[in-house]
């Protein structure tokens, strides 16, 4: 979709999760600015190389690349990035980043690293899916996002009834509460 159609609505161009070598863990592009996979990879490489040495572990950092604003935050061997247009409100982008970062933290129960992320790639992908839909911000509250994703990842082979669902949700909430307390 062209940006002009959503000109006033805050929008996200991409969400990128890379490892400490700059390799993709999970990415999602919502804009046509990078039409091919190689264009995407070039952008990721540029962003990774230029941010690699910065300290974005306690507070989210920010920089500009190719006339885009990129906010980013690192933990262990994972690098989280969120990109928006250069006239986008920087704080909205950083809210999206924080939502992504925190909900992944909740879902992986604090063990946020590349191994854990790859082993739970389904969770990461669902997480991105719950935060942004086609560039539009869907939800920014980490616990709500994690709740939505977790309620789905419970393995319930038995036929569904309202009860098992509420049970499932209860277990998920318990997990969350525990991980929050950590």
């Amino acid at each position: 979709m062209s940006p002009s159609k959503l000109e006033l609505c805050p929008s996200v161009k991409n969400i990128i999760l890379l490892d400490s070598d700059g390799k993709r863990v999970a990415v999602k592009y919502f804009s046509d600015d990078w039409p091919t996979n190689s264009a995407k990879e070039t952008f990721e490489k540029l962003v990774f190389n230029k941010t690699q040495k910065t300290n974005a572990r306690t507070e989210a950092e920010i920089a500009m690349f190719e006339n885009n604003i990129v906010v980013y935050k690192f933990v262990q061997d994972l690098h989280f990035f969120v990109t928006g247009a250069d006239d986008e409100n920087e704080l909205i982008l950083s809210t999206v980043l924080q939502a992504f970062f925190d909900s992944v933290g909740l879902l992986l129960r604090g063990n946020v690293d590349k191994k854990e992320a790859l082993e739970n790639l389904d969770v990461i992908l669902l997480c991105i899916d719950e935060i942004v839909d086609g560039g539009i911000i869907l939800e920014t509250d980490p616990s709500v996002i994690a709740g939505k994703v977790a309620s789905n990842s419970i393995d319930s082979g038995a036929p569904l009834s309202e009860q098992t669902l509420s049970q499932a949700l209860a277990t998920a909430r318990e997990h969350l509460a525990r991980s929050l307390l950590k």
């Binding site: 389904d122 992908l125 669902l126 899916d129 309620s151 789905n152 990842s153 419970i154 393995d155 319930s156 082979g157 036929p159 569904l160 669902l165 499932a168």
Partner: peptide
């Protein structure tokens, strides 16, 4: 399948 988790993944891959 009536598995919730699987259904979410089905939605994702269809998109």
């Amino acid at each position: 399948s009536r598995d919730l988790g699987l259904r979410r993944m089905v939605y994702l891959i269809i998109k």
